[in-house]
Each structure stands twice: as structure tokens, then as C-alpha cells.
Design a protein around this nucleic acid. Structure first.
Lengths: 195, 195
DNA sequence: CTATGATTTGAACGACCGTTTAGTTATCAA
DNA sequence: TTGATAACTAAACGGTCGTTCAAATCATAG
């Protein structure tokens, strides 16, 4: 056997990435074999190498795409004039974006250690850029005198950790809607910085 | 060669657990081989099986010990009368305890998916117990009318995520002491629940 | 000093790993 | 309809995996 009927790289390519995303999120990068990914796609292991240089690149590409999407989605948000409104927008955006793609988020936070040194540096830089967005808001709020953050970096990390944590417990169809969850988190964020 | 001079199970046993803790935290359970752990201990792979039934038990034992220590350390804390003081004690305890043992914390949060079903259930129960401690404090505070938490479970998860996040960025010898960090986190916790 | 048990080695087991390659079949433009 | 090329299989590569076990050496009680 060889090429299968109806096979096209524009179809198989995305399916490879989707399968890898799903399996990496469920079992972890190191615990998932190329053969498992191939089986999920419905293909033999060798065929994967038409779509990725190697396993490491597959992980990196997923993370890269996720971080790019995160940054560009935030950049596309409307920018309010005052810091408190921008902080609210950030909180709501962060929660909505993360709830939308739990697998990618999970991988981006858990598989950093499985990246090669160069790949890690690249992803880390993107993450820092995102954190910088929140930092800038807090800095502005401090300057405006509308919130208090004794240590901007600490507050940034604390708020991001709190917000990202929503993915560890929230499930659709539970007692709270996504909007209700975002409302409560925003209240907590506001309280935490005294705004 | 066979038995080495000066070999004793009371020495090698702890060294096996210490090596596993360190390597699992650095590279992840699935990415670490029994031979790597053995090399860290200075022993051949086969010798590890005098100290653990298998690799899975090694992971489980580490997690179990960590969760037991967490729960008993919290239980040993003095209990204040009012909810706000108990909340402050919890926040400070959580940060101090987690900063003290970053490797164990990291494993306990990251390697849950590598546990067998039964082992996962056991660890999850312990984690729930710990979360229940914070939940009870929030519940009491709500009853006392000294804080506001629209959804106790959400607030519990949000606060724990925020506090645990300290391990992702804090390093000893930086610009803030552990106590200073705890002070700021406690201020944020208090603000987040409007206390 | 001896004998018993504790501790470890070294080799081996079958299974699975990521990756490469030659060969085969489907697609599609001309 | 043909020929080129895209997509895939099947098999194989050397290596590593977790785990077991007989044999060897050390510690120690009597």
C-alpha cells in the first residue's frame, strides 16, 4: 500500500497538529510516541515526517502558534483610555481566551521543559511579551493613582496565575457561565490591586 | 562486583527518593529513566527495585509523602478565632510551605496525569482535603460577614492558584525576601475577597 | 571466625522509541 | 491518457525503556 485515496496535505497536516495537541495535552509530550500520534491521525508513523521535521519541532510549532495567537488576539482588543478599564479588559480577555483552548494552554505551561534551549528561549520571549502587557497596565494604573501594586512584577505574576488557574477547574455546563466566571474573577482582580 | 562497602538501605533509600524528586521535577516523570535515577544515586538500575516496586510507585510515594506533609503541617498551625486571621494564616503558610519545597510542589501539580487511576484518585482526595481547608475558612468568613466570595469554590481555586504561582517566579536572593513576598500576597488575597 | 542475610552488580528480557528510506499508489496538469 | 509529483506504507536502523534474576560481595550477630 502507499498513497491513500482522498489524501491531501492540507487535510492531513492540520490533523497531525490536532492529534499532537490533543495527545500532548492528555498524556504529556514525553509520554506520547510518534506512533500514537500517527494512529490518532489514521496513518503510519513515517508519514508524520512529511509534516514535521521531528517531534521537537512538532511541539515547538504548537507552542509558537499558540503564543502568536495569544499576542495577536490581545493586540486586536480595543484599548480603553484608563488603566482600570484596560485591566478589566485584560482579565476578561485572558479568561475567555484560555477557556477557549485548554489543550494549547496546558501544553504551553507544562511542556516548556521539553523544549530545546533555543526553542525555549523563543517561547519564553513571547510569554514575557504577554506578561509585559499586564505589567504596563499596572504601571499606568499606579501612575494614575487608581490602583496599588507594591511590586509590579509580583502582582503581574500573581494575577496571571490566578486567572490562568480557571482552566484547572472550570468545565462548560457547570453551575456558572463563562461570563459569570469572568465577572467574579474581575472582581477579585480589582480587589487584589485595590482598584 | 556486588555489594558495595558502606552500603545501607537507610542511606540508599532516601537517596533514591531524593534523586527521583530532583530528576522528575527537572525533566518530568516520563522523560526520566530508571537508569538516570540510578546514576544520580551512584548505583545500577536494578538496585532501585530494592526500594520501590516500580517506577509508578516511586512517583506515587513522592506525591503521597508531599501531600501528607502539607496536610499535617497545616494541621499543626495554630488556629485563630476569626476567619480573616485564619485566612491570613493560610496565605502565609501556603507561600512559606511551597517556597520551601519547589521540587515536590512542581511534581505534585505536574505529574498527576502520570499516576495510575487508583493512585490519582488517592492523591486527588488529599488535594481536595487541602482545598477544603481554605473553603471552610471562606465559608466561615462569609457567615461572619467579614468577606465576600460570590462562589466559594471559584474563590478557593483562584486564591490557591495565585498563591501557588509564587513558585514560578520567586528565587531566593532576589529583590524581595520571603516575608516581603508573603506580605504582598496576603494584601492581594485580602483585597480579592474584600476583607 | 563463621554463617546468615542484606545489598548490589551485570547481564539479559521483550517491547518500544524516533527517524530514515525504498518502493507503491493516488492525484492532477498537460 | 500519460507522466510527474504528492502522499503514504512497510520495513528496518540503532538505541533505550522498565524490569527480573542469578551470582557476588559486604555487614554483622553469635
Amino acid at each position: 500500500m502507499a498513497r491513500k485515496t482522498g489524501s491531501h496535505s492540507e487535510i492531513t497536516g492540520p490533523r497531525v497538529r490536532a492529534a499532537a495537541l490533543k495527545l500532548f495535552a492528555r498524556h504529556g509530550f514525553a509520554a506520547v510516541s510518534m506512533r500514537q500520534i500517527a494512529a490518532e491521525v489514521g496513518v503510519q508513523a513515517g508519514a508524520l515526517y512529511l509534516y514535521t521535521k521531528d517531534k521537537q519541532s512538532l511541539l515547538y510549532d504548537l507552542m509558537q502558534a499558540h503564543m502568536d495567537e495569544l499576542l495577536s488576539a490581545w493586540a486586536a482588543q480595543p484599548k480603553a483610555d484608563d488603566a482600570v478599564s484596560r485591566l478589566e479588559a485584560f482579565a476578561r480577555f485572558h479568561i475567555q481566551f484560555h477557556l477557549e483552548r485548554p489543550d494549547a494552554v496546558f501544553i504551553a505551561y507544562m511542556e516548556l521543559r521539553n523544549l530545546s534551549d533555543e526553542n525555549f528561549a523563543a517561547i519564553e520571549a513571547l510569554r514575557r511579551r504577554y506578561e509585559g502587557e499586564l505589567e504596563a497596565i499596572l504601571q499606568a494604573g499606579q501612575a494614575e493613582g487608581v490602583l496599588s501594586a507594591p511590586d509590579i512584577r509580583l502582582t503581574t505574576m500573581a494575577l496571571i496565575a490566578m486567572l490562568t488557574g480557571v482552566n484547572t477547574w472550570y468545565r462548560d455546563g457547570g453551575r456558572l457561565s463563562r461570563d459569570a466566571v469572568a465577572d467574579i474573577y474581575w472582581d477579585m482582580v480589582r480587589g487584589a490591586v485595590g482598584a
